[in-house]
């Protein structure tokens, strides 16, 4: 079985002048079912790594194979489709549509995947039940607590059945107790077989992963954060 993420010398240097090496070339394999955390201080290249791994940005060097698909050869439209179908994003700021209910927000995750409307609704309902929000299907995000909002966002990421759950500081906007709940949920999902990659600046959060990588000054290493 192919790894979920395979970086072969993937790096990103923003063209200058002067050229800024935001992510130094790196080899990386993330196998199916891993819970990888990436930790680093702000300005270390976390965002660049997230953008490259999440197909939001193209690397300037190397080859990135995601879930068996060589993304370097893809046209923009295909990259967009791969991003939509293989990666589930969870953001620090949740990015929920304020005027749509929880169910509609989750359905949005499958809007561009070509699924029939009925199936989208069924999957969205199942995903919300899965994250423990079966009782708040039609609540507007404004009426939800921060933890609940992040659960809706996680449900939205899960519903399209992605190969990778890519979380960017998912607990950054939450208090400690709620953050722990969300991390427990990620643990559960991982235990159920989901590949999770979590990017954070917080070593304690990073410690929840089964494998922790450190990024500093654009260099990604397999060392624990120090």
């Amino acid at each position: 079985m192919s790894p979920v993420i395979a970086f072969h010398g993937v790096g990103l240097t923003y063209p200058g002048p002067p050229p800024v090496p935001a992510l130094l070339p790196v080899d990386l394999r993330v196998e199916r079912g891993e819970f990888v955390t990436i930790v680093g201080p702000s300005g270390s290249g976390k965002s660049t790594f997230l953008n490259v791994a999440g197909l939001l940005d193209r690397p300037s060097s190397g080859r990135y194979v995601l879930d068996g698909v060589d993304t370097g050869a893809l046209k923009d439209a295909e990259r967009t489709a791969v991003r939509g179908s293989r990666i589930g994003f969870v953001f620090q700021a949740f990015h929920l549509l304020a005027h749509r209910g929880a169910l509609e927000n989750v359905e949005l995750g499958m809007l561009y995947g070509g699924l029939p409307r009925r199936e989208r609704a069924e999957r969205a309902r199942a995903a919300l039940v899965r994250v423990g929000l079966g009782h708040r299907l039609h609540a507007l995000p404004t009426t939800l607590s921060g933890g609940e909002r992040q659960r809706v966002a996680i449900a939205r990421a899960l519903a399209p059945r992605p190969a990778l759950l890519l979380c960017d500081e998912p607990t950054g906007n939450l208090d400690t107790a709620t953050a722990a709940d969300v991390l427990d949920l990620l643990d559960e999902l991982h235990a159920a077989g989901m590949t999770v990659m979590l990017i954070t600046h917080d070593p304690q959060v990073a410690a929840r992963g089964t494998r922790t990588l450190t990024i500093r000054d654009g260099l990604l290493t397999e060392q624990a954060y120090a």
Partner: peptide, 18 residues
């Protein structure tokens, strides 16, 4: 890294008119 190379034949995203 000897993972099977899949030819990139990805269905594009689509949005139904409705």
């Amino acid at each position: 890294h000897a993972e099977p190379e899949v030819a990139p034949s990805v269905p594009k995203s689509r949005l139904r008119m409705r």
